[in-house]
Design a protein around this nucleic acid. Sequence first.
DNA 1: TTTCAAATGTGATGTAGGTCACACAGGTAC
DNA 2: GTACCTGTGTGACCTACATCACATTTGAAA
Lengths: 190, 190
Amino acid sequence: MEAKESLKAHVAKITTLTDEQFDYFFSHFKKKSFQKGQAIITGGDPVDCEYFVISGCLKSFFINDELKMFILQFAMPTWWASDYNALYNHTKATINVDCITDAEVLCLTNADREKLCNELHNAEHFFRWRTNKGYVAAQKRLLSFMNNNVKYRYEELLKLYPELYNIVPKNLIAAYLGVSRETLSRLYHS
Amino acid sequence: MEAKESLKAHVAKITTLTDEQFDYFFSHFKKKSFQKGQAIITGGDPVDCEYFVISGCLKSFFINDELKMFILQFAMPTWWASDYNALYNHTKATINVDCITDAEVLCLTNADREKLCNELHNAEHFFRWRTNKGYVAAQKRLLSFMNNNVKYRYEELLKLYPELYNIVPKNLIAAYLGVSRETLSRLYHS
DNA sequence: TTTCAAATGTGATGTAGGTCACACAGGTAC
DNA sequence: GTACCTGTGTGACCTACATCACATTTGAAA
């Protein structure tokens, strides 16, 4: 089964679970399929899962009062997505997650993650490591935001994730870079 | 002993350690004192500790090619600071940490943190939780950067950390907000 | 008390990127 | 086919903030 193998390989990069342990770990995940454009987490709703991407591409984003969209993250296969603030603090979502393409994900509830972390020391280790990576990446992006202009950030993004260029429309790239689609367009024409 | 009590109270918010466990945990920390202006982590050097602040105020910051400074974080008592990217990946520091005021800190090496996480499941839980908080905060700040103007971000900062107003000079506040000190000055005069 | 450096205020001017408006191309539904 | 919607390019103009230059305040050192 493809989903199980994908998660297993992902976890194995960080920690070692026996087959029985991994089967138990995996039994807490629920596979779901979504279509292009479908919402997974909607602002204002309660959030109780995080999502491990098996196939397709998600985006997590914020919409401000003027309905302008800001993209926090694109999530490709083996990436995780959720509104972590809402998930950990049991508040309503302020972040949305939806599908840029058709997608398959594995859902893990907050309660099950905490249960797994409690029962399996290695699971806790895995999730600590994963959040570390996210934290370091978020800090890097913040620095790039302060330090670099749009052109640099655009090239940095494409160098890091070349696959995005083909999958993601330019207006979403612009929303990730925190720039207007017009300005982004003018970067590589005119 | 004040440092020990401070760390104990901090850890107790998240997890429960017996007195013996905490004593063992604490035995891996080394207390150090620094003076105002003194460097704790210097760009280019290897990084092997993270720092828990007992008293005083630190800043972690990045200096770009044009010698412009960007502040990632102010660290007040009970906050943690390091160059986490360098610390986890065993690379040279790209982030600096120094003292805005005289400061006392508890140092924990990367190796000792990993050892503690390995030996005490609760320690791993604590550090997972701590990084979660940092991750969520970094994402929030990123969103605020994309969404809000300088004036809003300045007021947001002072509302969240009013003590900074008295301790930290305005040019450092500006470096945190990612704005020139002149622009910051013009916000609340003229 | 004088001296000096760090921190701060403020004017003049430059510029990256935003906003608005409109055009056009390529799919998809009917 | 026609109609429509999403994505994209581009000109004209606007605005927030940067940069440079210089003045002023403040506080610590000598």
